[in-house]
Amino acid sequence: MIDTQAALENNLLEDHIYLIDNLRTEGSIGEGTKDLTSKVNGAYWSDGSQAGEYLFNWLPYPIASISPILPKTYKKDRAKAHDVTNLERLQNIAQSTKENATKDFSELTSKIGRNLKIKNELGEISTASTKLMGLNGDILPNNYSDPANMITHLTPQITNITGEAVDKGIIYPAQYGTPVPIKDGWYWSASTASKFVGTYKYTMHITLFKPSVSKGEIIWTPKYFTHDAQIEIVNAPMVNGFTKAGVTFLPII
């Protein structure tokens, strides 16, 4: 979890990143801090045989954002629905004989919303099919220009995972697609060679997008950061969280 706004304001990721895994019961340390060591109890099964691999998934998310539970197409769907509604309103205005039709038209155009504009390393600006969205999911009006408040931030992107754990063949990270709503359907994943007992550092390469105002509209510019974390593989056997026994058998009640 990243406080993207604060990280970008301070140009410092490490004070605004909170690493959390679901291996706390296994003994991970540093949960909710910038220094996470994920514990892998899994070199062996409880009967002493070689254990299977652990699978790690990395899911970066901005704190200032709409709910991560929303469908991955939500932003696009809302932009499309917003345009359809406004086209219907435009049709009504065009057919209206009211004297204040011009005023209605002006009001309507101010609420169309602006599509997201993202600058690349060459300074070129591309336009996304999603619109600038508030933290409550509403499309923000055309003249909205306060990048420090209310807007839902773009999701941070992991662009690579490198370092000792990769160099030594402990993890083989890659980006995958998923139908699950979190992370726009994309996430980084790696299987872990849990037979290699030890502690291994790895580096996440993370891109944040900084909103700034240019000619009255918000432009998002990528900013590049790295952050380290560790995996610790130990000999202790895997344990079923419900039974506290081995993971092979489930209790019959």
């Binding site: 979890m1 406080d3 706004q5 604060a6 004070d15 909170y18 959390i20 909710g32 200032a64």
Partner: peptide, 18 residues
Amino acid sequence: NNIYLLDNNKNGGSSELA
């Protein structure tokens, strides 16, 4: 030990994040 509460106002004075 299974919940982490975070907000986006650390710069504004929030504490005990996560």
